[in-house]
Amino acid sequence: MSQALLEVQDLVKHFPVGGGLLKGAAGVVRAVEGVTFSIQRGETLGLVGESGCGKTTTGRCVLQLEQPTSGRIVFEGAELTGLSQDKLRTVRRHMQVIFQDPYSSLNPRMTVGDILAEPIKVHRIVSDPAKRQARVRELLEQVGLHAQHARRYPHQLSGGQRQRVGVARALAMQPSLIVCDEPVSALDVSIQAQIINLLEELQARFGLTYLFIAHDLSVVRHISDRVAVMYLGRIVELADRQSLYDEALHPYTRALLSAVPIPDPKLEARRERTVLRGEVPSPLNPPSGCVFHPRCPIAVDRCSAEIPALREIKPGHWAACHLA
């Protein structure tokens, strides 16, 4: 196996809650609890899960927007955790992010042109101002906007246009990895398709690598090479797209997949559904053993006692279930 672009090992992120100046923390939210995965250059890894399962926190830790509690993050062969601010700054050039909400991810006081020119200027990618303007125009065209949009403010653009600006900003630094944190969840379905196609087009053109975080299984299926499913801070299944969607091994993945509607009423009526009971437990106080066992339709005694490890059950297909 060639060296991965990004390797995440046993990533843990706990958030202390409550408490005050004199009291210690009242509890700990176990947002991410030992997540391990790697992404090869040019690949798209989809990261799916319900709200609050820790997928966004995982992305933020990779970007070093959050300091992980423990674990290793190796990007382009360099360990990121514990890196000094200065060194981190140079690494960040190669790692970018696209956010969910195109309304709040752009500074309302800056024109689109300034938003795109700033990283190019700060990182001295293009130092000549005239050439920088040319680069901004080029970026705008690459994401399907016009050169004239450079003079607009974000509030003068539509949601889809803003998200294109967000994509252009990520491209401005010529990164190798882009963390897409639910980049289409806030958009209309028709715009979603446009942005997804744009991301795929840019990936083919510039050889980009994506960590694609989403809760929409159909979107993830469309764009990902491999998919990781998270539940309560852990990866429960990790496989290439085909085997995950065709023969899911983990009961949680199967339940998720059965919740995706099929656009054919006859098929939809005939298929069997796994409906999960109960709610997602609180990450403040996760269940013992397998975190999924209280809701699992096939749980046995062992599940509440022993935490299942993420095992390679078939080549390239990993699952964290005693019964898989």
């Binding site: 933020r60 970018q96 969910q100 909400d101 752009l106 500074n107 990283p119």
Partner: peptide, 24 residues
């Protein structure tokens, strides 16, 4: 998120404070 974006872009504290937060 635009402040996160500025941090992820590797901008310095001064730039984030003066250019991204103060005007808002």
């Amino acid at each position: 998120p635009y402040v996160d974006a500025a941090r992820a872009a590797g901008f310095g504290h001064r730039r984030i404070i003066l250019r991204h937060m103060l005007p808002n």
